[in-house]
Amino acid sequence: MLACVSVPFAVLAEPRRQQILELLRQRPRLVGELTDELGLSQPGVSKHLRVLREAGLVGVRHDAQRRWYELRLEPLRELDTWLHPYRVLWNRALDDLEEHLDTMPEG
């Protein structure tokens, strides 16, 4: 499973790809819309979309001459599942810290 999650992590490390996913989280979009929103060239946006598609994070739907790009949730669910045990550890550590701070005298 580690290999399964390492690809999305590597892909998501790029800030522009994060921005694209955030825009696609809101709704499917055309390349032109992404280009306008991000202030990037069409080839630049297309390059990022290709990487996101290859990682399985983005899908494309053809509608006549237009291509709608949309977020694919399954890889993100897999990441969330993989991260769950670590989230539990963090929550436990934060609860312990809160308990410690609550027992400290004010001053």
Rank of each mutant, 00 (worst) to 15 (best):
A93N: 13
L101G: 00
H100G: 05
D80S: 14
L76G: 08
H62M: 04
W82M: 03
N91K: 03
H84F: 15
L79A: 04
R53G: 05
R53I: 02
P8H: 04
D80L: 13
D36M: 12
T103A: 11
V88D: 15
G32N: 12
L52H: 13
E78T: 09
M1Y: 11
L57K: 02
L40K: 03
I20F: 12
V60E: 15
A13I: 01
D80E: 05
L23D: 01
E98F: 03
P43T: 10
D96A: 14
R53H: 06
E37L: 15
L97C: 04
L94M: 11
L38R: 12
L49P: 09
L97F: 00
L76M: 02
M1H: 12
A3R: 09
L21V: 01
L71I: 02
E98D: 08
G59H: 11
V7I: 12
V88Q: 15
L49Q: 11
G59A: 08
L76Y: 01
K47L: 11
R27Q: 05
E99K: 10
A13H: 09
P28H: 01
R27E: 01
R87V: 00
E98Q: 09
R25W: 08
P75A: 04
G44P: 10
V58H: 09
Q26P: 01
E74D: 14
R67K: 14
A10F: 08
L83G: 02
A3P: 12
A3M: 04
L12K: 10
V88K: 10
L94V: 04
E14W: 01
P85S: 04
G59N: 03
